[in-house]
Amino acid sequence: MSDTIVISQVLLQGLMVGAMYGLIAFGMTMIFSTTGLLNFAHGGFLAVGMYLCVTLYAAFRMSPYISILITVPVLFGMGYFLYRYIVWKVLKIHIITAAQITLGLLWIIESSLSMIFGADIRSVPTTIGIQKVYLGPLTLSVPYIISFIVAIIVGIMLYWLMQRTDFGRSVRAVTQNRDAAELMGIRVVRIQTIVFGLGLALLGVCSPLIIAMVPTTPSVGLQFTLFAFIIMMLGGIGNFLGTVIAGLIFGVVDAYGRFFFTGYIASVIPYSLLVLVLLVRPRGLLGEK
């Protein structure tokens, strides 16, 4: 294989994974900009979704692509009730305590998963997992293509939801000025609760797609939380389009990093990207003001 082919191959794969990252970070930035809360447990809930797929496979031989019908509503419900009955009540009193709770939750999730499933690597085999598509000289495995297509479809749905519906306008109003939103008669806490649910529902979309591509361990949560956080900062906090673009860039940079370097150096590259971008654009790629 020639160099350009390899380089394009890595680029393509980076973009496809990046689209997933974009969705994950989209949920985090949505939650942050409507509630003011950094959800440290974000990656943890992604792990919950993945282990839900592991369980459904073990019990019913269910393909992750079917499990998505279960992970989405389950994670939405988790987010909804968590915010409605715990996070919001703490948030009213003290925001740092609420952030602390999500951080604690990350550890609770990780240790519960270890206790139930063990610390070993787990994966869900799929029949299409091994299939490949040839695009000229490029080779793509089918799970990557599926996840990319789903990410695009979900991305378009989110765009429509945010730009064209009353709900989306209300969400944007809450992110831009909470008091003014209240004065318009928007039920701010209700919007925040639904957004928290939606943010986790996006993880419900991503987790089956990711477990179909790569195996997982109970400790992936922290890593995904950090990735989502970096992408959120890269895109400009609360900037929904910026987040998606940042996700794609992050995916590509990470893919090249892993391709050209190994070990520690590769894992430092995404953070260097963040520092570099923030040096030039302190409010992120598309951040304003």
Binding site: S170, A173, A180
Partner: peptide, 14 residues
């Protein structure tokens, strides 16, 4: 306290 990132029309609609 207008919504700065939204258009005039969207502000009114809200």
């Amino acid at each position: 306290l207008i919504f700065p990132q939204m258009t005039v029309e969207e502000n009114l609609l809200l």
